[in-house]
Amino acid sequence: MMSTCKHASELMSQGQDRTLGPVERLQLRLHLLICKRCRRVEQQFGLLRAAIRRCRDDS
């Protein structure tokens, strides 16, 4: 069963806050394999985290 982008974005977000379960990781990996939009959002989430660390550590 394919998860929606909305669900995938929830898993990508929660992946930054907790360890995802094996089923969740598999669901997300399969979704990212076929969804370019979500791959971009995953990259953007990574940049958000990096940006906030940079802001914090510079100031």
Partner: peptide, 28 residues
């Protein structure tokens, strides 16, 4: 149907973005 309405942009190289002052201003 739960899919993105628009196409998320390719933000490119993260390091380049982080060094970019316009990015920093927009982020804040």
């Amino acid at each position: 149907d739960g899919h993105w309405r628009g196409m998320p942009s390719d933000w490119g190289n993260p390091d380049a973005a982080l060094e970019n002052s316009r990015f920093r201003a927009a982020f804040e």
